[in-house]
Every structure is written in structure tokens, then in C-alpha cells.
């Protein structure tokens, strides 16, 4: 199978425009029989984590994968890493160069140390059973947005590598890569995902900062543990972090 063959069992929905692909996913989830990719050429209300604006100009990639997972929520959340690995693989496939791409906890894909993409997962449902999981993925294929936050990573576009890739072509590579990583995850659990993720991690062993709404933790980026938590070694001891923004 070539890296751009459409994976068996996944629906493919391409829209000219929508508010946001994750919102589109929420509206359609109940009527989807199986996993589905929803791509939009334009998003009028693209959003990042915690409502942050996400610029989504035409030519950049915006799509959401809808899944109906049956595992408990803490397992479902590990698809953050599955999605990051798939996105990393798709970027390598379309550019032909593995060097330059790396991962930032839990699911940012970096190009030459800059922010190339964003992944936002939303799971809807209660208790052990989820209604659906939406994995929203935005990639600066053509152009990088202007970002005002001086602490944020420099935004970069895939075009910097010289690669010219249309969103629908990129989707083919991403869907194929995702399907393969999903099989590894559901078949063998988090261990191979964790190992592959760590092999592509940026700044492992360096001093990094994890910031939450309430506090900041700075320490040596030691590893990612079996639950997916970021493990920092700090003067006060080891700290495992489940939710935070990471700064280099």
C-alpha cells in the first residue's frame, strides 16, 4: 500500500466551507456509522485549545477525524499521541525528509523548531462510554499565521521545505498514516506509541516549562509516562503533568 492510499473503512467528507471541522464533526457524529475524516477548505470559526483563535486560510489543512472509541476516557485521550505520530509521518511522506520534524508534548508537530500544526481532541460522552471523539488537525501547509504572543513558538509553514501540497492530497497521506498507527494502538496499546513518540520528541533531556491556568513547572524533560503524562524532574522531585502548555 502506498502512503497515500485511502484506508479501508474510513469515510471521506470534503466541504468547501464550515464553521469549524470539530463543530461539523459534533453535528454529524451521530449519523456516522464508522470513522470519518471531514476536511474543510475554509473554516469561518476555527479555534484552538481553550478557545484560542486559529487562523485557517485557504491552502492550509483543516480536518477532523471522527471516531467512536469504546475504551475508557483516559485511554481515548492517548490518541493525542497517535494523531501526532500520524501527522509527523504524513509530513515526512509529503516532503521526503524526516529531518526537521519533531514532536512537542503531547501532540504538537514542529518543523525546524517552529509550530507547524495544531491538534485538538474533543471527546463527548459520559462515564466510561463516549459518544464520539473528534480529532481536529490544522496544518500550515501554505502559509504561517502571524502570532502576537512572544512566548509562543514561531509559526512555520510546510512550504518552507519547498513542498507544495494541496489539502486533499495531504489528507490522503494523513488518513493512511493514521489508520496504521490506530491499528498499532488498538492492537498493542500505548507502549509502542509511547516509544515511537519519544524517539521523535523535541527537547528530551532539556529544561522546559509546563504552564497551567494555576502554576508553572520548570524542570528537565525526563520522559512521558505510561499514562501519557509529561514527566519533569524538578528540584522538588519528579512531577507528572496531565494537562498544560509546554514552553521551551
Amino acid at each position: 500500500m502506498s502512503s497515500s492510499d485511502w484506508p479501508h473503512g474510513y469515510a471521506r467528507i470534503v466541504l468547501e466551507e464550515t464553521d469549524s471541522t470539530n463543530a461539523e464533526a459534533a453535528r454529524r457524529a451521530a449519523s456516522l456509522a464508522g470513522p470519518a475524516w471531514i476536511l474543510a477548505h475554509r473554516q469561518t470559526e476555527a479555534r484552538g485549545r481553550r478557545g484560542r483563535p486559529w487562523e485557517s486560510p485557504t491552502g492550509n489543512f483543516a480536518a477532523t477525524l471522527v471516531l467512536h472509541p469504546t475504551e475508557p476516557p483516559e485511554q481515548v485521550a492517548l490518541r493525542s499521541f497517535v494523531a501526532a505520530l500520524a501527522l509527523h509521518e504524513a509530513c515526512v511522506a509529503v516532503t521526503g525528509r524526516p529531518e526537521g520534524f519533531s514532536l512537542k508534548w503531547p501532540n504538537d508537530v514542529l518543523l525546524n523548531g517552529g509550530k507547524l500544526a495544531g491538534i485538538l481532541l474533543e471527546s463527548l460522552g459520559q462515564g466510561p462510554r463516549l459518544d464520539h471523539l473528534a480529532i481536529g488537525i490544522g496544518v500550515n501547509l501554505a502559509q504561517a499565521p502571524q502570532v502576537e504572543d512572544p512566548k509562543a513558538l514561531r509559526p512555520v509553514a510546510l512550504a518552507e521545505t519547498g513542498a507544495v501540497v494541496a489539502p486533499e492530497e495531504f489528507l490522503n497521506h494523513l488518513a493512511s498514516a493514521y489508520a496504521a498507527w490506530e491499528i498499532r494502538f488498538t492492537g498493542f496499546g500505548f507502549a509502542p506509541i509511547r516509544e515511537a513518540w519519544l524517539a521523535r520528541a523535541a527537547r528530551l533531556g532539556d529544561t522546559i516549562t509546563a504552564r497551567t491556568m494555576r502554576e508553572e513547572t520548570t524542570g528537565t524533560f525526563e520522559t512521558v509516562d505510561n499514562s501519557g503524562a509529561l514527566v519533569l524532574s524538578t528540584p522538588k522531585g519528579r512531577v507528572a503533568i496531565q494537562a498544560a502548555d509546554v514552553f521551551f
Binding site: R49, S80, A243
Partner: peptide, 13 residues
């Protein structure tokens, strides 16, 4: 409830 950048919506049962 967020973990690993997964936003888990907690619904009224």
C-alpha cells in the same frame, strides 16, 4: 476535563 489536550466534555447524566 482536559488531559493530553483531549477536552472531555462532561455531560449531565
Amino acid at each position: 476535563v482536559e488531559a493530553m489536550k483531549t477536552m472531555n466534555h462532561i455531560h449531565a447524566p
